[in-house]
Amino acid sequence: MSVLAQLVSLEGISFILKWLHLFFGLLWIGHLYYFNFTQGSAMAQADAATKSGITTKLLPIALWWFRWGAMWTMLTGIILLGIKGHVSGMEVYTSGWGIAILIGVTMGLTMWANVWFIIWPNQQIVMASATQVAAGGAANPQAAIVAPKVLLASRTNVLFSIPMLFFMGSASHLPLPVTPESNLCAVTAVLGVLWLLIEANAIKGKIHFMQTVKGVMTVGFVLTAIIYVVLAAFI
C-alpha cells in the first residue's frame, strides 16, 4: 500500500482525526489550565485597571479559542468513537479499551457541556458588565452572582480533566483485565453515582476543596485513584 493510499484509508482517516482530537484537546485544556492556574492567581494580585483590561480585552479572545477548542475536541472524539464501533463492532465498548475510553468520554462530554452551558453563558454576563464599567457605567449586579458559578464549573472541569486524561491514555497503554466475571453493572453504578454527585455539585453545589489550585489538583489525583480502585474491585 502506498503512503498516500494508507493516508486515505479508514485507518489513515482515523489517525488524522486522532491527531486533530489531540490538537483541539490541547487548545481547550491548555486554556482551561491557563484560566485556573495562571489567570486566576494573576487576577487576585492585579489592580482594578489591569483586571478590567484582562476581562474586557484578553478574556473574550481566550474564551473563543477555549470554547471552540472544546467543541472540535468533542466532535472529533464522537466521530472517532463511531468509527471504532463501526470497525470493531459495538461489543468493543464493553472491552477493557471500551470501559477506559468511555470513562474518559463521560468526563470529556460533561466538561464540554460545562463549557457551553455554564461557563460561556455566565462569562458573557461578567464580560458585558466589565465593559459597561470600563465605559463609565454601572456594574450589572447579576455578574457578581454568576461569577462564582463560572469558577465552580471551571474548577470542576479541572477536577474531571485529570482522570479523563488518565483513562483516555490508559485505554490503549494500560489494558484493563476484563473477564466474563467482571461486574460491569457495578462499575457503571458506582462510577455513575460518583459522576452524578460531582456534576450536581458543579451545577448547584459549593466549591469545597476546589477553591485553591492545590486543592483542585489534589482532588483530581485522588479521584483518579478512587476510580482505579473501583475498577480493580469489580473487574
Binding site: S88, G89, S95, G96, G98, T179, P180
Partner: peptide, 21 residues
Amino acid sequence: KSIYTLNCIACHNADPSLEGT
C-alpha cells in the same frame, strides 16, 4: 471467545481470521 472480545478486539478484528485496525 469472551476473553478475546473483552480484551483483544480494540486492535484485532472481531473475526480473528481478518486483519484488525
